[in-house]
């Protein structure tokens, strides 16, 4: 029963993905500017024959719907076209950069959850206490703060003033990490390279906090408000009347219910995380997908931009799909 419902959700996500692919494709093709000019670097001195060759190579000489058909067919096979500038398959370029981005995103998510859960729970339990007021003011700040500026301030403080944390890149050059998967934490653990592991973790802290701060603020607020509502409910009195300790009441009976709205907001926040990723990678010179997209935009390398935007949108749809599925386990009342 549950399995068929999950399958239904997965199938419902497919047309959205198709729509995303078509939208991205149309956007790229309908904007002014001849891709061939970009590929040639506006240098001139290129023969007509070469231009024609390039046109047919990139299928630019065919009608729009044929191009779309070819594009979609290729996309299903994992082929997102060729980069105009780097002359590599877009898929290859994206996959190369993806581990860095995923590692940072996971670090940010972990940091935000580690901050948000204790703060959200504590400020609900001790409502109106100094702790509550301070953390709610802090979360307001987190929501209102532009992440790129926060990143710069962190760099100024911890990198420039205190010199305690690295502010650029993923790892120190002298860590000698042999790269296997591209996930540096994983790589340094399996190769037993402690120096590289510590260096990687240090490099993750500032960008992770920058990216995770706003998430933490939003998630903490949701946890707090739902915990407040739940702690007033009858079933909390029942749990106490059974003889459960106060912490058990809060962490088992209340938190388990508060997870339902919290997971929803975490799913939505993945979108913010992905967008913030471009900004934070730019600020911290993080060699990930986001930074590649930003430079691709300036180089007018449209296939690469298009491919990356699709990957982002796809990730977002997947994240919400996972949330939907998690929901069926968290909330016994769920009926789709």
């Amino acid at each position: 029963m549950k399995a068929t419902k999950i399958l239904e959700r997965v199938l419902a996500a497919l047309p959205i993905m198709l729509g995303v692919a078509i939208t991205v494709f149309l956007f790229m093709r309908l904007t002014p500017g001849d891709p061939v000019d970009i590929m040639m670097g506006r240098g001139g001195a290129v023969s007509e024959g070469e231009i024609e060759k390039l046109r047919s190579e990139f299928n630019l000489d065919k009608p729009l719907y044929t191009q779309l058909g070819i594009y979609l067919k290729d996309a299903i096979h994992g082929n997102l076209g060729y980069s105009y500038i780097q002359k590599y398959p877009v898929t290859t370029l994206i996959i190369e950069r993806l581990p860095a981005t995923i590692e940072l995103a996971i670090a940010a998510l972990i940091i935000s959850l580690v901050i948000a859960f204790p703060i959200g729970i504590a400020s609900a339990v001790w409502q109106n206490s100094l702790l509550d007021r301070l953390s709610m003011a802090g979360s307001f700040l987190g929501i209102s703060m532009p992440s790129f500026w926060f990143g710069i301030i962190l760099i100024l403080l911890f990198g420039v003033q205190l010199h305690i944390l690295p502010v650029q890149g993923r790892i120190d050059f002298d860590a000698h990490l042999s790269i296997k998967t591209g996930f540096y934490i994983w790589d340094s653990i399996i190769t037993g390279n402690h120096v590289a592991l510590i260096s990687t973790i240090k490099h993750l802290i500032l960008p992770g906090i920058t990216l995770g701060a706003a998430e933490a603020a939003v998630i903490a607020r949701v946890i707090r408000s739902s915990m407040l509502e739940i702690l007033r409910s009858d079933y909390i009195v029942l749990a106490r009347s059974k003889g459960a300790s106060e912490w058990r009441v809060i962490l088992k009976h209340a938190l388990r219910n508060a997870l339902i709205p919290t997971v929803t907001i975490i799913g939505l926040q993945v979108g913010v995380l992905l967008g913030g990723n471009m900004i934070v990678e730019t600020v911290f010179s993080w060699p990930g997908l986001g930074r590649m997209v930003v430079s691709a935009i300036f180089a007018r390398d449209f296939p690469l931009v298009q491919g990356a935007v699709m990957v982002y949108a796809f990730t977002f749809v997947m994240a919400n799909l996972i949330v939907d599925i998690l929901y069926t386990y968290l909330n016994p009342k769920i009926t789709f």
Binding site: S233, Y235, A239, S241, G243, S245, I260, N331
Partner: peptide, 28 residues
């Protein structure tokens, strides 16, 4: 003390409530 009253609740003295639907925890 808190620990002692928790030992009394549910074991020596139990309570039942007015509205059973809202009193039972919906997720367990």
């Amino acid at each position: 003390r808190a620990k002692e009253i928790q030992g009394v609740r549910g074991k020596e003295i139990s309570m039942i409530f007015q509205d059973p639907l809202t009193t039972l925890n919906p997720v367990f």
